[in-house]
Write a protein that binds this DNA or RNA. Structure first.
Length: 921
RNA sequence: GGGCGCGUAGCUCAGCGGUAGAGCACUUCCUUGACAUGGAAGGGGUCACAGGUUCGAUCCCUGUCGCGCCCACCA
């Protein structure tokens, strides 16, 4: 093995081998375990969020595969209707064309070409991450099979009356020219104005003052509303006002919706352009005056002077005209929430159109119950509150989109505009006995992307066919996702899963946090703080990184700032850390928190961890080289038994972490065992056995076997988190440990052996001895290479026996010369001292330590001990503590008082002695 | 307005009723034959604040302050 771990050389080679050996397919044996990937956009690229999520899913998948489960990680991609269509439209725009120049068919053809061209990117990137998805089952939401599932669900829901077509207000994007669901509209506060307008009363003098943030819509007002209990206006209800500019008379109505305290307490009602007003209009039978065309340009329903004006131009004109008429009472600055399309960022217009809707309440009810009754569990649990909140207030889902890229709605219109829904035109004709000559026109609209995503857990498994995979892997075991798509996706999968499969789509939903940059900022192109997971794996030079971050910005003026910040944060670019380091970092970051800050310092630490593991393996291999490792006469040492006991504890902790979606705890347990117990201690302890001429052969054999077996077990435990380095090392180590499988991937995840408290305690004593000596060495700045003698005094029963059992390790790890008890009557030399129980460990100071330094050291220890002792004594002095605390706790405190007291006494005696000797010297 | 979350070492975060932990950063010593992407030792915290429950609270409860996210029709 090379001296330094170099991920570049191993990762892609191993992945290719796994893939060609078909290691990612379900084994066909064991309990089913399945995860469906949240499908990324087919034309997208892998970002940190994907990499994080994929790492989690892959860790779970590999873990369960090794547990012997019949494991499927189902891959696939999403057609991402609006997003993908926009990308291709932008390409066309660059050529000076629009999609309308091409026409629907040619445009869709072009999108398919783009999909073929760029669709492989994300799959390639997932391979670099080591994702063990079953590529043979790769699916795309617009595949023939999945499209069939979409049609089937649509037809069935329609037949049940759960899908209907209706004319009502929708969120209209005047730029993209499509309807959007409520979820795709983001409302942000923006500063604007509140115009107070004067509407003259038709009978008599005076006027009502209405306040509005959208004066241009007044042209479509069909009423003014006041609160029914408002004394100021009660007498006017039923009377009429003159709508300025439009020159129509409109009624004054009473509706509870009005807030008396806001503005004048009078509200203009524009049912065709405001969701609230629409409701009011429905209640009062008001007419709708639809002022806008699909571009939000005023149409012929507006007075002639305003026709053809864009909504913002119309606003200016309306205000100017009203001012000229003296009908503007006042204008105030006002912060309002402006709805914008999540893709186009255009201001959304409530607009009256025909759209398709899913009647959601009958679907939401069982979906709510499924979580309430625990058939689906959110992890962390409190996300169920968010889910409940949404599901209890859910509204019908507008599923039609006026786009070209997507699943076309399976509805046909006859010449009389009668609607026929069916799986195909021919089915429709047959079912309804329509003559072949009767022209039918298919609905132009496509379905919301999330409609097909909602079917993902079963459509990918072959539904509507009753496939074997569907039977075996549905419901899936867990859904791994971010909280940002609980409503978009998770809730809808639950609803559709229950509806069509009669069963929840997954038993658990693991909701992970969202990856942000080191400052907690969302990563975005315009902020210039994006990290590409592939750059963390392969490394990237500074210039290239700067170029990448500043290229193709929507706002080019940001480039300078981005460049500066990038140069500051990454003066040397980014080093190549390798996939395993990146993955281990992600795992260690997978805490319960919602925002996860990704700090490059962290990945460096875990790259070092990979290197540590690599070198530990080198040491183990060197140590066993040329020796028979098979069973034979062996005599395990205390150290051997200790490391096995500690390994068992680490495996337990790791399994607990993996089983509870606490990959941070799992990775921590493995990190700590590997570094602090296996490397720092056991490898060093083993040297005392292996590199000694006096160790008997059975002991050496036991040490070698323990080394190789512990490493081999550790590799298997680490594999789900760090697949590449573990496979690479395992290929050499596995056979030596008696395992002859072709890949670590298909080896069993290690069962925890037995822990041994007695062994742990015995080793603890030896370690404490070594630490005590090292502490003196460290604090006295004695070089590690400087060997010195240690004398012992005050040994308690058993101490000397323990000493003998641990002597070879103590001598070696503390780098000691002579190590012996003071003889009876032998004068105690001037010494630095440490206490280990009643045992006094003496380091003769002559030539090593000066008195002042030792006095200072002792003072410090004594002060700390006095504090601890006082605290503990106070506790025991409290009668109610002794009376109420569990006996074990009280006993523990008593023990501590004893320990502290003994150590304190020892050190105080020593301090006095050192002082005396010092002054005498 | 409703819902959720966070405030622990300089930074990023675990812990969550019984002696405050890790990584990174910092200080000192050390190239000893697995590893300087390393080893050894060390400094550093009134666990936001105030009450309460308890023998005992960083942990449970209540409130205050600060920060954040999500939903919602105040024109």
């Amino acid at each position: 093995m090379d001296k330094t771990y170099s991920p570049r050389d191993i990762e892609q080679r191993l992945y290719a081998r796994w893939e060609s050996e078909q290691r990612f397919r379900p084994s066909g044996r064991g309990r089913p375990y399945s995860i469906v990937i949240p499908p990324p956009n087919v034309t997208g690229t892998l970002h940190m969020g994907h990499a994080f999520q994929d790492t989690i899913m892959d860790a779970l998948t590999r873990y369960h595969r090794m547990l012997g489960d019949d494991t499927l990680w189902q891959p696939g991609t999403d057609h991402a209707g609006i997003a993908t269509q926009m990308v291709v439209e932008r390409q066309l725009n660059a050529e000076g064309k629009t999609r309308h120049d091409l026409g629907r068919e040619a445009f869709v053809e072009r999108v398919w070409r783009w999909k073929e061209e760029s669709g492989g990117t994300i799959a390639r990137q997932m391979r670099r991450l080591g994702a063990s998805v079953d590529w043979s089952r790769d699916r795309f939401t617009m595949d023939e099979g999945l499209s069939r599932a979409v049609t089937e669900t649509f037809v069935r829901l329609h037949a049940e009356g759960l899908i209907y077509r209706g004319k009502r207000l929708v969120n209209w994007d005047p730029v993209l020219h499509t309807a959007l669901s409520d979820l795709e509209v983001l409302s942000e506060p923006e500063s604007g104005h509140l115009w107070h307008l004067r509407y003259p009363l038709v009978d008599g003098d005076g006027a009502l003052i209405v306040a509005t943030t959208r004066p241009e819509t007044m042209l479509g007002d069909t009423a003014v509303a006041v609160h029914p209990d408002d004394e100021r206006y009660r007498h006017l209800v039923g009377k009429r006002v003159r709508l300025p500019l439009a020159d129509r008379d409109i009624p004054i109505i009473a509706d509870e919706f009005v807030d008396r305290a806001f503005g004048s307490g009078c509200v203009k009602i524009t049912p065709a352009h405001d969701f609230n007003d629409y409701e009011v209009g429905q209640r009062h039978g008001l007419p709708l005056v639809n002022l806008f065309d699909r571009d939000a340009v005023l149409n012929d329903a507006a007075p002639p002077a305003y026709r053809g004006l864009d909504r913002f131009e119309a606003r200016q004109r309306v205000v100017a005209d009203l001012e000229a008429l003296g009908l503007v009472d006042k204008i105030e600055p006002h912060t309002l929430t402006v709805p914008r399309g999540d893709r186009s960022n255009a201001i959304i217009e409530p607009w009256l159109t025909d759209q398709w809707y899913v009647r959601i309440e009958p679907l939401a009810k069982p979906a709510l119950e499924a979580v309430e009754r625990g058939r689906i569990r959110f992890v962390p649990e409190n996300w169920d509150r968010t889910y409940y909140e949404w599901m209890r207030n859910i509204k019908d889902w507008c599923i039609s989109r006026q786009l070209w890229w997507g699943h076309r709605i399976p509805a046909w219109y006859g010449p009389d505009e009668r609607i026929y829904v069916g799986r195909s035109e021919s089915e429709v004709r047959a079912r309804h006995g329509l003559a072949p000559a009767l022209p039918l026109r298919q609905d132009e609209d496509v379905l919301d992307t999330w409609f097909s995503s909602a079917l993902w857990p079963f459509s990918t498994l072959g539904w509507p066919d009753a496939t074997a995979e569907l039977k075996k892997f549905y419901p899936t075991s867990v859904l791994v996702t971010g909280f940002d798509i609980i409503f978009f996706w998770v809730a809808r999968m639950i609803m559709f899963g229950l509806k069509f499969m009669g069963e929840v789509p997954f038993r658990e939903v693991y909701v992970h946090g969202l990856i942000r940059d080191a400052e907690g900022q969302k990563m975005s192109k315009s902020k210039g703080n994006v990290l590409d997971p592939l750059d963390l794996i392969d490394g990237i030079g500074l210039e290239e990184l700067v170029a990448k971050r500043t290229a193709g910005l929507m706002q080019p003026h940001l480039a300078k700032g981005i460049e500066k910040a990038t140069r500051k944060q990454f003066p040397d670019g980014i080093a190549a850390y390798g996939t395993d380091a990146l993955r281990f970092t992600f795992c260690s970051l997978a805490t319960l928190s919602r925002d996860i800050r990704f700090d490059v310092g962290r990945i460096e630490g875990y790259r070092n961890f990979c290197n540590k593991l690599w070198n530990a393996a080198r040491f183990v291999l060197l140590s066993v080289e040329g020796h028979d490792l098979g069973p034979g006469e062996e005599q395990p040492s205390l150290a051997d038994r200790w490391v096995r006991s500690r390994l068992a504890a680490a495996l337990q902790a790791t399994a607990a972490g993996l089983g509870s979606y606490r990959l941070d705890l799992a990775s921590q347990a493995l990190y700590e065992f590997t570094w602090y117990e296996f490397c720092d201690w056991y490898l060093e302890l083993s040297k005392a056995v292996l590199q000694s001429d006096t160790s008997p052969e059975p002991e050496k054999r036991a040490a070698r076997r323990t080394l190789i077996q512990t490493l081999e077990t550790l590799l298997r435990a680490l594999h789900p988190l760090m697949p590449f380095i573990t496979e690479e090392i395992w290929q050499r180590v596995g056979p030596l440990a008696g395992r002859d499988g072709p890949s670590i991937m298909v080896e069993p995840w290690p069962a925890a052996g037995a822990r041994d408290a007695a062994v742990d305690a015995e080793m603890r004593w030896i370690m404490d001895f070594i630490l005590a000596v090292r502490q003196i060495r460290g604090e006295m700045d004695i070089a590690p290479s400087r060997r010195f003698d240690v004398l012992l005094a005050g040994a308690a029963a058993g101490d000397l026996a323990r000493l003998e059992r641990g002597r070879r390790w103590i001598e070696r790890l503390a780098n000691l010369g002579a190590l012996r008890p003071l003889a009876a009557g032998e004068p105690e030399p001037e010494s630095a001292v440490a206490m280990l129980g009643e045992l006094r460990i003496l380091v003769p100071m002559a030539g090593l330590i000066d008195v002042a330094a030792e006095v200072a050291r002792l003072d410090k220890r004594i002060a700390k001990l006095r504090q601890d002792l006082a605290k503990t004594e106070a506790k025991l002095g409290n009668a109610s503590f002794v009376a109420n605390a569990p006996a074990a706790v009280v006993e523990q405190e008593r023990q501590r008082v004893q320990d502290f007291g003994r150590e304190l006494a020892g050190l105080e005696t020593q301090l006095a002695r050192v002082r005396r000797l010092g002054s005498g010297a």
